[in-house]
Design a protein around this nucleic acid. Sequence first.
DNA 1: CTGTTAGCGCATTCAA
DNA 2: TTGAATGCGCTAACAG
Lengths: 348, 348
Amino acid sequence: MAATIKDIKELTGLSLATISKYLNGGNLRPENRAKIEKAISELHYEVNEMARGLVTSRSKVIGVVVFDIANVFTCTLLKYLGENFRRAGYAPMICDSQNDPELETENVRFLLSKKVDGMIVIPAGQTAAFLQPARNAGIPLVLMDRSLKGSGIDCVKVNNTASSYQAVEKLYDYGHRRIAIIGSDLEITGKERLDGYLKLLEEKKISVPPQYIKLGHHSIEHGYKSMQELLKLEEPPTAVFMGNFEIILGAVMALNESPFECPSDVSLIGFDDLIISNLSNPRLTLVVQPLRELADSAAELLLKKLEKGESQDNGKNGFSGEESSAELPEGERILPARIVEGESIARV
Amino acid sequence: MAATIKDIKELTGLSLATISKYLNGGNLRPENRAKIEKAISELHYEVNEMARGLVTSRSKVIGVVVFDIANVFTCTLLKYLGENFRRAGYAPMICDSQNDPELETENVRFLLSKKVDGMIVIPAGQTAAFLQPARNAGIPLVLMDRSLKGSGIDCVKVNNTASSYQAVEKLYDYGHRRIAIIGSDLEITGKERLDGYLKLLEEKKISVPPQYIKLGHHSIEHGYKSMQELLKLEEPPTAVFMGNFEIILGAVMALNESPFECPSDVSLIGFDDLIISNLSNPRLTLVVQPLRELADSAAELLLKKLEKGESQDNGKNGFSGEESSAELPEGERILPARIVEGESIARV
DNA sequence: CTGTTAGCGCATTCAA
DNA sequence: TTGAATGCGCTAACAG
């Protein structure tokens, strides 16, 4: 089958060690170097990473576990992560959890059996138990987008609460008082964004009817249904804050099917994503997450740990099950989102 | 560090062979089975796939090379592919070529060094040379979306020409005669779709000014610029066929910024993607590719080859470089796309 | 700078 | 059914 260093040895008369040294960038006599290179290209030799990994116990592979791969948000991050890892000589091994905690658990196990050197995780659930095997294995871990409260695992994310506060504040500044939210209290990011909305209402001493607060999943259906219901109210909101991309999709769809117009009848601001907003007419004003920075930062953090050989397990968490302490993760990095202006907000 | 079967041996007093047999589903005495299971859970033992792979020379990993991962089309396919492979006990290892043939070549090498059992490829370029190492290695290969002419490698794709023919025919049936295209002659799928457009014009004996045929890359910029130019013509088209998702994005953006309205001023039909169309107002009429079927079919094809231990290299192609013969790939599977109705086409 | 040797964790002969 | 021995392809001492 495939050529091995033994074949190179036959062809060159050199020893295995010399060839290995060549492969790993050691110094050797130019003539030998040339011989080896000739043999390699003749034999179409490729390093067998399994054998190498068995010895070094490092695979140069980084596991990436995402809650849902069929998702603009996720795959943009994957793209940037991939660029970073590549540059550092690592390759990502991507696992899709399909929003299923069981699959997520299995993914972690799987990646461990593949001896990945580290892991990036965008968790599906809200508990860190599924990561315990990885912590036991002592490999570096970095979370993205969603932190796991009290787990002590580093996380890179945006400041959801502050950003959604700003978004709603923009509606407020444009004169809106009847401000609704279509969001989520089931996803952790949704909760944080809801907090921002509520905080602004509280600070500005605005009260809204409970029907203005539509909570469910971050899903197209929820967005669609909620917008329909909002527009049917006797006193519909003049502005709606939409908590994530799927919700935006559903809500805009419902609005398009209704007699209401944006922004004359109802103003909109949404959280997540950028490209897509160009499709809607008028263009949506959005809170855009710095995806590039998120990925770069997470990759850098993980690579740094990889270099230092630092383990995620700090010794305090050697047990499995629920964490009790509410210790603040030391490495939590919170990036600011920015508002990108469209024409979906009217003055009132 | 991590437990090995040696540790299990110590703990149970059984031999390595017995434990190995257990791990691989062999028959053994219930009491021994119980002992081993106890030891495994105590030690948190996980099979080291690197060591196993070194012996079996099978990794249970399937390499997936995509031309661009940050792309709704791609990542939806990835999702479905992942489900299929998972079910069959394989895990996908995804590599992003970033539309760069060099990176693509490197990706193939990389995956080979990881000893993947097979590969799914959505190629960035149009020549098959970069796959030669994989063919030499004798692993099964399946292309998706874009075939490599005369390479003899199986491919699962949609019938681009026929589908775009139908799309343009729909415009024709609605009474349109001034039909423009914003498409690509640089991507293979673009070419095929262009063919469908031209074929319909020819059959219906319609002639259009050359300015109606906008060819470039499958990019947002191309779509945006082309739509602007089309609308500026003295006699603008009454209908536009948009060749892929990025082009749709750009074109709709340009249209939204213009005084023209869809469908009263200009009718639209686009190729690719589904979800997104809901954002635009009116909803776009689209040619939708059967992503689920594409992925299922490609996965099935590859898994079948994996079972049969069939190699992609049929012996006729043992050389590298350009292929000369125009042999039809035996396993080419062409699936039909379907038109999903929106409200973006007016009668004229 | 180069060669010899040992062993990574596992599956797989062959004997028992 | 189980056990002992061998080797997968490579790296990492160590000695030369």
